[in-house]
């Protein structure tokens, strides 16, 4: 059985429990054990722009906790993945390691840090996922949104393709749904700019919502709570600002996968989706 330490970060356990719930239930269905990390904190990313070293030390502490549990780490948020991966690299740099040690922390063995979705792709694999699907979502048209820190920077991750990513599309197709090819797939959601300039951030989010609308997507699939904040929580703002009506549901990938594995709506937390995916459920049911 595959065992991993699950790093939740700040947003997921408080604001996106449906993401966490569906990830845990999908993991169980695929024979993956997720072990919680006692004492885990914020990943540190919010402090990176203020002081990179502070952010890296906060991140290093979190992966040290997983290291002490002798487990590799999976994360649910793209930015957590990037921050913890940065720290994992820094822990091999002598000066950083000595600062880390001065704080009384220990890192007994090197741990791998990966996004939960990357783990699904690499360790479970498309074939096994396809075999586990009980209810293929054959009629759905899904638009996969990767977010930035899932595969960029490529020198940090060495995974997927920074310009033309494909792994999430493959994972969407494994559920039986269609994964739409579309322009500007790697466009940023704008989440990092939201606190600095809302107008710019909403304009960025609107770009992809508009593409989803034009392509007749039944839903957008996200793998990061910040991207979901932009596309789901701020969809009304984008509609008001640009005089459009979208009404596009935004599902976390484990929610979509969970439905195809035969987990019911409660098991993937559908009632917590702000834009109700009723049309998706109708399509699946018929």
């Amino acid at each position: 059985m595959n065992r991993y330490a699950i790093f939740l970060g700040c947003t997921v356990p408080v604001r996106a429990q449906h993401y966490e719930l569906s990830a845990r239930n999908v993991a169980r269905a695929l024979g993956v054990e997720l072990v919680d990390i006692p004492g885990a904190s914020c990943c540190g990313f919010p402090m990176k722009a203020v002081d990179a070293e502070t952010a890296l030390l906060i991140a290093a502490r979190n992966i040290a906790l997983a290291s002490q549990m002798d487990l590799d780490v999976v994360t649910l948020c793209n930015s957590c993945t990037a921050m913890l991966s940065d720290a994992q690299v820094q822990l091999n740099v002598k000066e950083f390691r000595s600062k880390f040690k001065k704080l009384g922390m220990s890192y007994p063995r090197e741990v791998k840090v990966r996004h939960f979705v990357r783990m699904l792709y690499e360790d479970i694999g498309i074939e096994n996922i396809r075999k586990a699907v009980k209810k293929p979502l054959a009629r759905l048209k899904i638009m996969a949104h990767y977010g930035c820190h899932y595969m960029r920077p490529s020198n940090l991750y060495g995974f997927d393709n920074a310009e033309m990513p494909h792994t999430l599309d493959e994972l969407v197709r494994a559920t039986g749904a269609e994964s739409l090819e579309y322009a500007d797939k790697k466009m940023c959601c704008g989440g990092s700019v939201l606190g600095i300039d809302e107008e710019t951030a909403i304009t960025m989010a609107n770009h992809k919502l508009n593409i989803a609308h034009e392509n007749g997507a039944d839903g957008l699939v996200s793998i990061c709570p910040f991207c979901t904040v932009m596309y789901e929580d701020n969809q009304r703002k984008a509609e008001a600002r640009f005089g459009r009506h979208y009404g596009i549901p935004v599902l976390y990938y484990p929610q979509l996968l969970g439905l195809s594995l035969g987990i019911d709506g409660n098991g993937v937390g559908l009632k917590f989706n702000r834009i109700k995916p009723d049309a998706i459920l109708d399509k699946i049911a018929t």
Binding site: A49, C148, P153, N155, K186, C188, G190, S192, I196
Partner: peptide, 19 residues
């Protein structure tokens, strides 16, 4: 200065290899 979204689109394309 604060508008950078830290998305790394630039990092991927810099011909000088600057992060």
């Amino acid at each position: 200065l604060w508008f950078c979204a830290h998305c790394h689109a630039c990092t991927e394309r810099c011909p000088q290899g600057i992060r």
